[in-house]
Computed example of a mutant assay.
Amino acid sequence: MAWPLVGAFLCGHLLGFLCLSGLAVEVTVPAEPVSMPMGKTAELSCSYSTSVGDNFALEWSFVQPGKPISASAPILYFTNGHLYPTGSKADRASLLHNPPTGGLATLKLTDLRPSDTGTYLCNVNNPPDFYTNGLGLINLTVLVPPSHPLCSQSGQTSVGGSAALRCSSSEGAPKPVYNWVRLGSSPTPPPGSMVQDEVSGRLILTNLSLTSSGTYRCVASNQMGSASCELNLSVTDSSEGRVAGTLIGVLLGVLLLSVAAFCLIRFQKDRKKEPKETYGGSDLREDATAPGVSEQASVRADCSKGLLEKSPAASTVTTTKSKLSMVV
């Protein structure tokens, strides 16, 4: 019997303490995240139950996704009967009911922007009600259609090679999904030669052929809309490239031979036009040919001289005949 009496005694003292010290503040916010299109107005519902006193205060704050609650920044606060918007959202933030002393503290945020996505904190403070933290959290997502995506390609775009096509939008909430399609009436690629990832926007093309060439379109989409970009893929035949290289080499070789032959012919013509070597007056030799005398005459003279030198008898006879003639 002693334990029931002790329990009743403790409960009585606890209730008396609560009556003297105040009641707990209860804050109610939506359990599910809130989504709203960009440019629209969001109403973030927050209600509370407490006996509003002279020290009642309300604060709304905001924290970006991925950051701790302690990093939140004030949007507006109400105290001493006055409302004070603050921060970068001050010109767009207000209370749906002002003053918020009737148990409703709903935040109204106009002209929503992508930067408004994050967590909003509704904090009610009513001393001496300190038995709960008086805090409610609301997650807001601003819906944004995908921005114009950027298409790019990489890899070896030759027959038998592989290529990767990429597609990405810088904006879009929720995050866009990507779908690649091939335009035109080209033959359908073999199964497994086209593999795409809708999350990353990547398309892998394997075992490329000349029929793989064409226009590919990437469509980025979410519940707010879609946007697309296109890319022209050109697959080349490496064997054709080798043939073209060989042909170019042959043509260059023929050109070099032609230039060499032209230079040789030109050199021979110039050599024939060069003047023959002559001797000056100071360089005359005894056996030199006089100017104007042909080489044939010079040869005859040399031959005659040789005959005269080898026939002394003939010289004597001539001299004798000459003397005889003079006597007669």
Rank of each mutant, 00 (worst) to 15 (best):
A244K: 11
A227P: 02
L23H: 15
Y178N: 03
P68Y: 04
S154C: 07
F267I: 03
S258D: 03
D129P: 05
F262T: 10
G66K: 05
A24N: 04
A164T: 15
S228C: 01
N139R: 10
P74R: 05
W60L: 03
R266F: 09
V317S: 10
G241W: 00
E171F: 09
L83R: 05
N232F: 00
L5H: 06
V254G: 10
C263V: 07
G53R: 14
S185P: 00
H148T: 14
R92L: 03
S51L: 15
T289N: 09
T28D: 14
S322L: 12
Q268H: 11
G136F: 00
R166K: 13
K175L: 02
V6W: 08
Y178K: 01
D302S: 14
P128S: 08
V25M: 08
T246K: 10
N55L: 14
K67R: 13
G161H: 06
A57K: 05
L233M: 00
D302T: 13
A105G: 06
G253D: 03
H13K: 11
E277V: 15
P275F: 06
R202I: 12
L264V: 06
S209T: 15
V317E: 11
A71D: 15
T316Y: 09
P187F: 12
V27S: 05
G253H: 05
W60M: 01
R92F: 01
T41C: 07
G241D: 06
L83A: 06
A8G: 08
N232H: 01
V259H: 00
V63P: 02
P191W: 12
C303P: 05
P74T: 02
N232A: 01
E59T: 14
G253A: 14
N139P: 02
K276F: 14
G39Q: 06
K175A: 06
L20H: 12
T215V: 01
L284H: 07
K305C: 07
T211P: 00
E198H: 09
A314W: 07
C11V: 12
S294I: 14
F78N: 02
V317I: 13
